[in-house]
């Protein structure tokens, strides 16, 4: 079994995202998107059971590759990454095009994603990759049960449902479904010697085009000059009075 698992490098999420000309400003040092840790964890659980080979795939500005290292520290075998200046500001389909080609390059049977990135959250890349690869997409996985066969629990709008994992497919894993492992010191050292292969746009079949033209970004953040009271015992009454005034009760 061969598994490709997607890892996106994003600006430190503790800092505000900034934009320039409609693009997210990306410093040289970016970190692994926490959302991807869930997908990586599923990949590693499959690796342990089926002796799979796990390759991290990623596109975007590589910089110091900190995020790629963080992904490798969790336990994948190697990484295949693609960076090309012409891809900055890629729409979802361009990104999906690159990632599906990377999945093909590593001959993945199973390609695994988080459900949406923290900085872009378009929430469609796994599904687009599956369509490009002509494989079924098992999206929004919230629990994994690995025995001789693998049963995947999907989140649905009304509850959940289970699906047997097909031998070739694309998965997207929601946050919280599995508990991502923490690398120890040994894992961190071992990751440094794992191969990170870099390829360029000319190495893949790329045909997606940009069809979204940036106009502008407007700040719509709201702050209210609301009342703030430090409770000295009467806080509950203030709330009840307010609810009465609002005719909520």
């Amino acid at each position: 079994m061969k598994i490709a698992v997607c890892a996106k490098q994003i600006p430190d999420p503790a800092l505000d995202i900034t934009y320039s000309e409609g693009l997210v400003s990306r410093p040289d040092e970016q970190v692994l998107d926490d959302t991807d840790r869930y997908g990586i964890e599923v990949a590693l659980q499959l690796k342990e059971k089926f002796d799979a080979e796990v390759t991290v795939i990623s596109m975007g500005k590589m910089g110091t590759e900190k995020g790629i290292q963080q992904a490798l520290q969790m336990g994948p075998d190697k990484a295949l990454v693609l960076e090309d200046d012409s891809l900055s500001g890629s729409n979802s389909l361009m990104t999906a095009n690159v990632l599906s080609e990377l999945s093909k390059k590593v001959e993945a049977d199973i390609t695994i994603f988080g459900t949406e990135s923290t900085d872009g959250y378009s929430g469609v890349i796994p599904q687009q990759v599956s369509r490009m690869l002509g494989l079924p997409c098992i999206s929004y996985i919230k629990a994994v049960d690995i025995a001789d066969t693998v049963s995947l629990t999907r989140q649905t709008s009304t509850g959940s449902e289970k699906v047997q994992m097909p031998s070739n497919c694309v998965l997207s894993v929601t946050a919280g479904g599995v508990e991502p492992r923490y690398p120890n010191f040994k894992d961190i050292m071992a990751a440094k010697s794992k191969p990170v292969e870099k390829i360029s746009l000319s190495d893949i079949e790329f045909s997606a085009v940009q069809n979204i033209e940036f106009i502008d970004i407007k700040d719509v953040s709201t702050t209210k000059q609301g009342e703030k009271i430090v409770d000295e015992g009467e806080g509950f009454q203030v709330i009840i009075d307010k609810l009465k005034e609002l005719k909520a009760i």
Binding site: L93, M94, R131, Y140, V209
Partner: peptide
Amino acid sequence: PSTYVGRDLIAFLSVDFSSSQVSN
């Protein structure tokens, strides 16, 4: 609508017609 079903379907169709979607 941006729901589980809507996201899957728009994603599939955007590939079929080679036109990226706008999300959110």
